[in-house]
């Protein structure tokens, strides 16, 4: 299984565009579809993938202990209760930042590759050491960006670095798309972004308040089977990643249907 494992780096350059949220939701979606999936938090300094997955209180050992050989890999892996196909490998102690080298990261990923179909690496923001460590271990990458000039610029920079590191394929996820603002041209359009970045578009994720709610609860949207726009986008992305042929959503038509309107009405009453 080692060679078949897809080690996917999820990175963006800029912070706060939705790397961790995408990692968590993609992890759950892939696991739902039956793939053995591991999510690895490479953001050692400011880790919060465990928070998003609601696994913070179950962490005992971390990747650091595994490398020091004070525990076994399966002791450190935290299995998600509701989605047993998904495991989290916690990042390690934030106070010991300098212990990790690219070789260590490679070693961890190699160990994970033996038992998982997918290894998703949540990359830290920036292009410094943390990023370099994460890149060293990955085979392919997903770039997350928002339709904002600064996020696109940083993504462009990161794509350049990934290319020089020989990572292929690199795909694009455009996060926090607001159809109305795109229509009125207050926001960069999808074409603007793909034009500059020149990458295949893996998917769009619509702006959705439910994402914030789910983040705070530690239950990724895809886990609770939500039918909110973002949740559908995430599971579509997971499907495409597995080679399914799912058409991209058309943001201009989103939210017009009777079902969407009804759903919105329901949500406003509940929350």
């Amino acid at each position: 299984m080692t060679s078949d494992t897809r080690v996917i780096l999820i990175c963006s350059g800029k912070g706060g565009v939705g790397k961790t949220t995408l990692t968590a939701n993609l992890g759950i979606s892939l696991a739902r579809k039956g793939s053995q999936t591991a999510v690895l938090d490479a953001d050692f300094g400011l880790r919060n993938l465990d928070l998003l997955l609601g696994l913070e209180n179950r962490i005992v050992y971390t990747a650091q202990e595994v490398l020091e050989e004070t525990c076994r890999l399966d002791q450190a892996l935290v299995k998600h209760k509701q989605e047993p196909n998904l495991s989290l490998l916690p990042a390690g102690n934030p106070r010991m930042l300098d212990w990790l080298k690219p070789e260590d990261m490679k070693k961890i990923v190699e160990m994970l590759s033996k038992q998982f179909d997918y290894v998703l690496i949540d990359c830290p923001a920036g292009v410094e050491d943390g990023f370099r460590n994460a890149v060293a271990a990955s085979k392919e990458a997903i770039i997350v960006t928002n339709p904002e000039v600064s996020a696109v610029r940083d993504a462009d920079r990161v794509i350049g670095l990934l290319n020089t590191n020989g990572i292929k394929p690199v795909q694009l996820v455009l996060n926090r798309v607001r159809p109305k603002m795109m229509e009125s041209q207050e926001m960069l359009s999808i074409e603007d972004v793909t034009d500059i970045l020149a990458l295949p578009l893996l998917g769009l994720v619509l702006e959705d308040e439910q994402v914030i709610v789910s983040t705070n609860r530690g239950e990724p949207l895809t886990l609770i089977g939500s039918q909110s726009p973002a949740a559908r986008c995430y599971s579509n992305i997971a499907g495409r990643l597995q080679g399914e042929d799912i058409p991209l959503i058309d943001p201009s038509k989103e939210g017009d249907g009777l079902r969407d309107k009804f759903r919105r009405l329901m949500q406003t009453k509940i929350f």
Partner: peptide
């Protein structure tokens, strides 16, 4: 001596 480059030159390059 013309320098040929094929492909996108990205931010920071």
């Amino acid at each position: 001596h013309i320098l040929f480059h094929q492909g996108t030159i990205r931010a920071g390059e």
